[in-house]
Design a protein around this nucleic acid. Structure first.
Lengths: 119, 119
DNA sequence: CCATAATATTCCTTGACACGTATATACACG
DNA sequence: CGTGTATATACGTGTCAAGGAATATTATGG
């Protein structure tokens, strides 16, 4: 199951991760909140654990699962160059809109003026 | 092909996206840089275009593909809660290490002292 | 020990999708 | 218009992973 991206491609696994972000949960709690058959939960948790997304600790018959940050940080790291890309584009758009701003001092009624803030 | 996460689960598609982040490219350029058979490139680009990751413009026989930001921004948005999670944890680790810092003024040789910066 | 609760694993089936190969379409230029 | 170049699509195939049902494992308390 190669990469972290394949792991989070599965919607149920993303749901589980989103649940765990607030606090640790037992298998049964996840099962109920996501209305998902128990074997499914266990199997997805197995995958998540093997990939380092979560870790479990034993509490009587229950197992409590909690998030580990590293794998999602990898995803975040992969996104970094793209973030630079799109912020550059937003800047370009800003400049473009700013140029659209003033030019036409045509004496039309100018019913509405969408005022834009300066960066 | 449901979600943006499934799209970027494919390694070759991620490679293509990473290529396009610097500048737009033709199919042939992608083909050569990634040493990937041309039909494969075209097919992945098809998927990426249908999902809104890229757009193409015609230039003679070539088609130039360039990035569109929205889908990856979705991924970024999904990561937001987790970022809060792990920065909280880093803070906790910092505090923990800081507490380890001073306490033992035992008169051992104290050969090495790993000095840590203050936040 | 036994009964029960909580979780994990196994087996099977099914569908999706990535890949290769072959072929089709589109465009340019002599 | 025919040839070459660039890109797209169609088809057949193998793989792999998710889902469901049944069962196994582990722990608890009486």
């Amino acid at each position: 199951m190669e990469s972290v991206f394949e792991i989070i491609a599965e919607p149920n696994r993303r749901a589980i991760l989103s649940l765990l972000v607030s606090s640790q949960q037992s298998v049964g709690e996840i099962e109920r909140q996501l209305r998902m058959p128990q074997p499914a939960v266990s199997k997805h948790l197995r995958v998540l654990r093997d990939a380092g997304f979560v870790e479990s600790k034993v509490d009587a018959q229950r197992r409590l699962y909690r998030l580990k940050p590293e794998p999602l940080q990898q995803v975040d790291a992969w996104l970094a160059p793209f973030r630079r890309f799109w912020s550059a584009h937003l800047d370009a758009l800003e400049r473009h809109l700013d140029r659209m701003e003033e030019p036409p001092p045509d004496q039309s009624t100018s019913v509405e003026k969408k005022t834009r803030r300066k960066k």
